[in-house]
Amino acid sequence: MDEQKRAQFKKVLREIKNLPTLPGIVAKLGKMAEDPDTTTEQMGRVISKDHILASKLLKLVNSAFYGFPQRISSLNSAIILLGFNVIKSLIISASIFEVMEAQDVELWEHSLGCAVVCNVLARHLGVKDPEEISTAGLIHDIGKVAIKMELPREYEKITELSQEKKISRLEAEREILGLDHSEVGSWLAKSWNLPNKLVEPIACHHDPHLAKEEQQASAIVHFANIMIRGLGYGHAGDIWVPPLNNKAWKLLALAPADIDPLLREVEEKLWDVKGFSLDIQTGQEGAA
């Protein structure tokens, strides 16, 4: 790979112009969440100023996607029940949802499916705030969207090369760009000031052994990506199930007896999220 070319692609992708920025409210809520004096009411007031975001947030909270057992009908109770960090990651999901849904429906389905598996795995493993892992699963392939939007010609070449040589999309990206979607996704996530709990799983979902702080979250997203590809739900650019990293597998410590119940739960939840969209114009909550 020509070093100069790689640097050029890197520059284009780092300066991302076509992807929308996250709403300012995410940064504001991030600061509020760090301040121990912030009250639920203050946070609720900030979110409710954006009516569309507030409706989307409640729709997302009550969807099978996150699977909270009881129905949550107000922003304040959502904040009290779920906590600041979860609310922040829900707002990030609500914002990124639209970008991805509009770009590539099949990749979107793959991402939604991956998020569902992440949620099931995180709950099974007793992880604190499984919603954050779901969000990581939802946006783990955001780098693919960025490549498609910023480098459409190269994106086509990657597709052709992957089909011609029968190699994975990841390998084709590395061959054509000298970098891959996980690296691109991690830059994007960093530029949005997302927490490391989201950045590392995005950066390391193909190489979870490289995760330094978020090893468990990275391992969950890694295996969720494998499982959802194995189930053939959505399409992530090529048909093959990617290899399993041994270190991540050991960390997850799943027993053969865990697989059947996990598959059953994933399939049920996939039915529930089928056709889920945050388009509040057509949704039930749109009228509220």
Binding site: I226, W240, P243
Partner: peptide
């Protein structure tokens, strides 16, 4: 076909078997 490139990875072969059985 989806699993053909990971045939040497035992846990994934088990996963495949369970998906097919289900």
């Amino acid at each position: 076909v989806r699993f053909q490139r990971v045939e040497d990875i035992a846990p994934l072969m088990y996963l495949k078997k369970r998906i097919q059985a289900k």
